[in-house]
Structure formats: structure tokens, C-alpha cells
């Protein structure tokens, strides 16, 4: 059963709806003790990474999350929270995956936010099982996770290559919104729920 970190950073109605459509059971995590009730954990998040980190700190869940050994998936800003630092609000984050979250550079002739469907190249990670390479996912973000071959499990390109998905041990992060990414996104959520502990 999936536990969703409930820390007030953005709306989780769509994520819950997607899990319901997929018949994946889920519940809310408000306290460290509640982390034990679930086999898999999702950290959602929309909006400002620095503000989201502050909210997460207020719940007292930062250290308990870092200590988890079960599969954890950060989505969008939730993914950025597991990195070391974000240029958004010059914020220090959880530093589970030692990479940086940076602002897209508009001087490259790209529009910000990066909004819409973009294709990804994935590296046959279990998270992407059954997802075609070059499949498109829905992105909406102004800050991105720098490409690092050690942690990158899927790459997208917007002005330059960046990490659409990362993994370190049991921690996963996706920059796109699987709950809004059609069939490919639903497959990814299903895959996550099937990851072994």
C-alpha cells in the first residue's frame, strides 16, 4: 500500500484519482509513525521548492524519510526535494541524491516554464518497465535536475539534456507528472507500486 506524504505542498487530488483508477490502495502520511503503515512512499509536490522544503521540515518527516529503506518516489517538486539544493529560493534540500536543481536558462531560446509533453530516453530501469523508449510524459516546471550519469535513469531534452528521472538505492524521482501523463504515466505508477522492498 502506498503512503502519500501529506505536507500541504500542492494538490494531490489528481494523484489520488490516478491511483484509484489503477486500483492501487493508498493512504496519507502525516507523522513519522505512519510511515510504517505503508510499503511504498510517494512525495508529491507542486510550486516553490524552497517553500515546499520548509513545509516538509515542519512535519518532522525529513529525517524519517531519509532513513527509509522502502521504495520512495518523488514527483515534480517532490523529486527536487530529494536533491541537494535548489536555485529556487537558494534552498538546501534533503540531499538524498547529491545533484542540484537549477533554473532553465531562457538565453537558450526556450520558454519557461517547460510545459507540455516531452519524450524521454530511459535506461531500462524497473520503473519504466513496459514503457516505450521515446514515450512522452507531461512536464510542467521551471527548475530542472542536472544530468548526472550516476543517478540518471531517464533523460529529457529542453535546451539541454536534464534528468527526467533519477534513482539512488530505494529513492526514485520523476520530474514529469505520471498522474497526468496518459497511459505511460499510469504504467509508471503501477511499476512503482510493484517495486520490491
Amino acid at each position: 500500500m502506498i503512503g502519500i506524504i501529506n505536507y500541504g505542498a500542492g494538490n494531490i487530488f489528481s494523484l489520488c484519482s490516478a491511483l484509484e483508477r489503477l486500483n492501487i490502495p493508498f493512504g496519507m502520511v502525516n507523522t513519522a509513525a505512519e510511515l510504517d503503515s505503508y510499503t511504498h512512499i510517494i512525495i508529491p509536490g507542486v510550486g516553490h521548492a524552497g517553500a515546499a522544503m520548509k513545509k516538509l521540515e515542519q512535519t518532522g518527516l525529513v529525517e524519517p524519510i531519509k532513513a527509509l529503506k522502502k521504495p520512495v518516489l518523488g514527483i515534480c517538486v517532490g523529486m527536487q526535494l530529494i536533491t541537494a539544493h535548489s536555485e529556487e529560493g537558494d534552498a538546501n534540500l534533503m540531499n538524498i541524491v547529491p545533484v542540484k536543481t537549477r533554473l532553465f536558462n531562457k538565453d537558450q531560446g526556450i520558454k519557461i516554464p517547460h510545459m507540455g509533453w516531452n519524450n524521454i530516453e530511459h535506461k531500462n530501469n524497473s520503473l519504466f518497465e513496459g514503457v516505450e523508449n521515446d514515450a512522452q510524459f507531461y512536464f510542467v516546471h521551471s527548475y530542472f535536475i542536472e544530468y548526472n550519469p550516476t543517478f540518471d535513469i531517464a533523460t529529457a531534452n529542453y535546451g539541454m539534456p536534464f534528468s527526467a528521472a533519477v534513482q539512488k538505492d530505494n529513492f526514485y524521482g520523476v520530474q514529469f507528472h505520471p498522474e497526468k501523463s496518459g497511459i505511460a504515466g499510469e504504467r509508471l505508477l503501477k511499476n512503482f507500486s510493484n517495486l520490491k522492498q
Binding site: F13, V140, S181, G182, E186
Partner: peptide, 11 residues
Amino acid sequence: VKSVARQLNIP
């Protein structure tokens, strides 16, 4: 809006 969000897998 809620009904749409429940059924829709696109933004």
C-alpha cells in the same frame, strides 16, 4: 471539475 479530474489522465 472533480468528476473530470477523477476520470482524466491528461492535464
